[in-house]
């Protein structure tokens, strides 16, 4: 039974595309057949983050307009078997595709793949409507900022109105130190407002900047970064596994460990 998951946020710049790429990589490395669909027509990024930009021949709009067959437009990932990318068009805009066409496309992709992960553009207009059209499940990405949470709330409302049940939440770019000091919204604060299931927490990680610039999603080397590990865990939860939340606390120094030991005794 295949499933289409849309990754959305409302607000821009919270890490939808990064989440999408990493979730795709994580699911594929767990042995599933995955297609990443970039629905951000006119502002495509997913191909860059995946490092597949120079392999694009046909794009989503070409498929929809019947210039090529779906299989011709799918780009096979260079690292993982079973991972594909359907890139967005860059010289067109969101109105080149209708929600009905997107639904058709996603349904067609489902025939041969286990997971279709759709990268939704920011905003709540046509692009958003297209991206959610064929999806069975939604994952909302937010950062621990009031503005991002506000937009996520709006999106959840829209999703519920269009029949989505129980979207999952990914809190991205959290800084444990700031949270500890009380300078940043904590996970319970965010859950309190949004009242949806938490699918994962991803720490703010410099490695993400490096990996997105290089076109090598962090989840490819999940042991190399906390963020990569966090995305791997999110993929497991998407698959239905129970995975405890990652321990995000910074590494303790020798003296801190010693003090702790003494206290316990």
């Amino acid at each position: 039974m295949s499933e289409a998951i849309v990754i959305t946020s409302g607000k821009g710049g919270v890490g939808k595309t990064t989440a999408c790429a990493n979730l795709g990589v994580a699911l594929a490395s767990l042995g599933h057949r995955v297609v990443l669909v970039d629905a951000d027509i006119g502002l495509r990024n997913l191909d860059v983050v995946m490092g597949l930009e120079n392999r694009i021949v046909y794009d989503l709009v070409d498929v929809v307009e019947g210039f090529c067959r779906l299989r011709q437009a799918l780009i096979k990932d260079k690292r993982l078997d079973g991972l594909f990318l359907l890139p967005a068009a860059q010289t067109k805009d969101k109105t080149s595709v209708t929600p009905e066409q997107m639904k058709q496309l996603v349904d067609q992709l489902k025939e041969e793949h286990d997971y279709i992960v759709v990268d939704c553009p920011a905003g709540i207009e046509q692009g958003f409507k297209n991206a959610v059209a064929g999806a069975d499940r939604a994952l909302i990405v937010t950062t621990p900022e009031v503005a991002a949470v506000r937009d996520a709330d709006r999106i959840i409302g829209l999703l519920e109105a269009s029949g989505f049940e129980n979207p999952g939440l990914i809190v991205n770019r959290i800084r444990p130190k700031m949270v500890a000091k009380g300078d940043m919204m904590d996970i319970p604060d965010i859950i309190d407002i949004l009242a949806i299931d938490l699918m994962g927490v991803v720490p703010d990680d410099e490695y993400i900047v490096v990996s997105t610039n290089r076109g090598e999603p962090a989840a490819l080397a999940a042991d190399r970064s906390k963020a990569g590990e966090a995305f791997m865990n999110i993929a497991r939860r998407v698959l239905g596994e129970e995975v405890p939340l990652l321990d995000l606390s910074e590494h303790e120094t020798f003296w801190q460990k010693l003090l702790k030991l003494i206290k316990i005794e």
Binding site: R55, V57, D62, F67, C68, Q72
Partner: peptide, 11 residues
């Protein structure tokens, strides 16, 4: 070379 088969002319 990109190995996928293509046919631009149709486009």
């Amino acid at each position: 070379p990109e190995t996928r088969t293509i046919d631009y002319r149709q486009k």
